[in-house]
């Protein structure tokens, strides 16, 4: 077991599966710029390390992640610098372009950027006590960790707007019936369930998982004929590597 400790998270690898534990429990694992940089490093490592077949992201303490750390807002030097940094440290594309499966194991509050991080993963497993919400518009913000793109792609535009405009959170079961969460389990079973899923996926041919992620993420917003073409190309390439 390799273990690495960052300021905002713990990173470890056991049985080929990487575990990322968000570690700011005193602020319900609020996402800040340090966490962004820590995650960036960790996910680059996961992508680069052939010994790692997949990863699980989860929260320490009572919550998954209660959103962005608002105490940091307004500290960006300027809009244009913030915009440059956004593309230099493009963490969200790194999530989406990681060819290895990512599982979010969610308990407690999963709010704003926390919800968006979960949506950037391939599978969300949630405990019964998990609560999901997008409060950005109450704060004069829009979701900016991909939420306006990932959520409508999984639940359609109407349910997405309903979630973005509602002051209430949704339960794990509601998220499950909408197709956001793939499995709801007891909090005791949460990590085991996520590990089972990761182990199952780590036994598949990694290039199949990578091709599948790419085809779905890219294809779900292409005209159908182009999506089909991308799928065919992947299939042909995979036949050759069989």
């Amino acid at each position: 077991m390799i273990m690495d400790s960052f300021e905002t998270l713990d990173f470890s690898v056991g049985d080929k599966v990487a575990l990322i534990m968000l570690k700011r429990p005193e602020v319900r694992n609020a996402f800040n710029t340090t966490m962004r940089d820590d995650l960036f490093q960790v996910i680059e490592t996961i992508k680069a390390d052939y010994a790692i077949t997949g990863s699980i992201i989860y929260g320490s303490g009572k919550d998954f992640c209660a959103g962005a750390d608002l105490t940091e807002f307004g500290t960006a030097p300027s809009q244009s610098i913030a915009r440059t940094i956004r593309w230099e440290r493009d963490l969200w594309s790194l999530f989406l372009n990681n060819p290895k499966p990512m599982i979010a194991a969610v308990h407690g509050n999963c709010i704003g950027s926390g919800f968006e991080i979960a949506l950037l993963c391939d599978v969300i497993i949630a405990s019964y006590n998990a609560r999901f919400s997008m409060p950005e518009a109450r704060l004069g913000l829009i979701a900016a960790a991909g939420g306006t793109q990932t959520l409508p792609r999984s639940v359609g535009p109407s349910k997405a707007i309903s979630i973005f405009s509602s002051p209430d959170s949704i339960t794990s079961q509601q998220a499950h019936s909408m197709g956001i969460v793939s499995k709801v389990v007891s909090i005791k079973r949460l990590m085991d369930s996520a590990r089972d899923q990761a182990t199952y996926l780590s036994n598949l041919r990694p290039e199949l998982i990578a091709a599948c992620k790419f085809a779905v993420n890219r294809g779900c917003s292409l005209p159908l004929n182009q999506g089909l073409l991308a799928e065919t190309r992947s299939a042909l390439r995979l036949m050759k590597t069989q």
């Binding site: 915009r83 956004r86 593309w87 969200w92 594309s93 989406l96 950005e136 518009a137 704060l139 004069g140 913000l141 829009i142 979701a143 900016a144 991909g146 939420g147 306006t148 793109q149 990932t150 959520l151 409508p152 792609r153 535009p157 997405a160 707007i161 973005f164 405009s165 993420n217 890219r218 779900c220 917003s221 292409l222």
Partner: peptide, 25 residues
Amino acid sequence: AMRYTKEAIHRGLDMPLDQGLKLEA
């Protein structure tokens, strides 16, 4: 913020995901 959220959702669904992320940002 609500108007922009609406715009990001509807216009974003008409784009490849990476372009949608740029629009959102």
